[in-house]
Amino acid sequence: MSALLLFLSGNEAFVATDAAAAVGTRLVSLTPKIHVLPHLHVAMGVRGHFGALRHVIHLVQNLASPEDLQTVLPAKLKETYGFRVKWFPKLWGFDLGFAGYDKTGPYVELISSVSREDHPAFEFRRFEVIWVSPNVPMDLLRSSYDQADRDPDGAAIAIMDAQRSGGGAVIGGYGQITSVGRKNITTRLLKPYPDKILQPIDRFSGITVKSDEGILNFN
């Protein structure tokens, strides 16, 4: 599984992911995991098995309207993938994280094929502040969110670096972030990681940590 970050800052919604497609800890390819869908006015970040996600992404891309995203997608995902994830959870377990803008303003929400505490599978859940997976320490989450209003990219980098070094998922290649505002959707590079194709990912390489003297890069 990958890194997936969803958060609100100012009058924008943000989604960030890494780009590693891996077998075990070995980097197989660089795979963008954020998909911009202008007709739905959202950007979608994905986590899960790449082969299975191709089908899911195709389904979302062919929704006709923002209303279909909210009303049609949950039932369609459950109908199509509910039995598959029951029998093959490692293959068909996925998270779809959305950063969007509607008449209420910016929003971030998640729909997943697996159930979490207080969040049933195949149902949308919106978040008022921030959601990330894999989890990071709460103090880092708080400090990063406090930073997000003045430096959303820096906040996302701090979280993604912690996710990478934490070992809860294979994270690497590069970090990507997309912001969604009232009129614009903007995607950009967060940072590259020094990972090599067909080589194992060293989860401690390329980590940026803060010190009293400033920023230190470990390569």
Rank of each mutant, 00 (worst) to 15 (best):
D18C: 11
S211H: 09
L91A: 10
I111P: 00
P194M: 06
K191T: 06
E123Y: 01
L37E: 11
K210W: 10
T186H: 12
L141R: 01
S179G: 14
L189A: 01
D149P: 01
T71G: 00
T186A: 09
L73K: 08
Y193Q: 05
E117F: 13
S113P: 02
F98I: 15
H39Y: 11
S165F: 03
S112Y: 05
Q163N: 02
F88L: 12
V132Q: 07
V28T: 06
E79T: 14
S211R: 11
T104D: 12
L110D: 12
T71E: 15
L59A: 05
L30N: 13
E109I: 00
R126D: 07
K76P: 06
G168Q: 04
T71C: 12
D139W: 09
A21W: 13
V56G: 00
D146R: 15
H58C: 10
R150W: 09
F88K: 10
A162S: 09
V28D: 08
G166K: 09
S179I: 08
R47S: 04
P200Y: 06
E12N: 09
Y107K: 03
P152R: 02
T187G: 15
S29C: 05
L4G: 10
M138S: 13
Y107G: 07
S112C: 09
W92R: 00
G181D: 03
T31G: 00
V42N: 09
T104E: 15
G45A: 14
A21D: 14
D68W: 13
L53H: 11
G24E: 14
G93W: 01
W92F: 14
V36Q: 13
I207E: 06
H41T: 04
A99N: 04
G172M: 04
R84T: 04
F94H: 03
G154F: 03
L216A: 04
L40S: 07
T17I: 05
S205N: 04
K210Y: 04
P89R: 04
R164D: 02
K86P: 00
G45I: 10
A20Q: 01
P134L: 08
L6W: 10
W131Y: 11
A16E: 02
H49L: 13
V136C: 05
G97A: 02
L91C: 01
D202N: 15
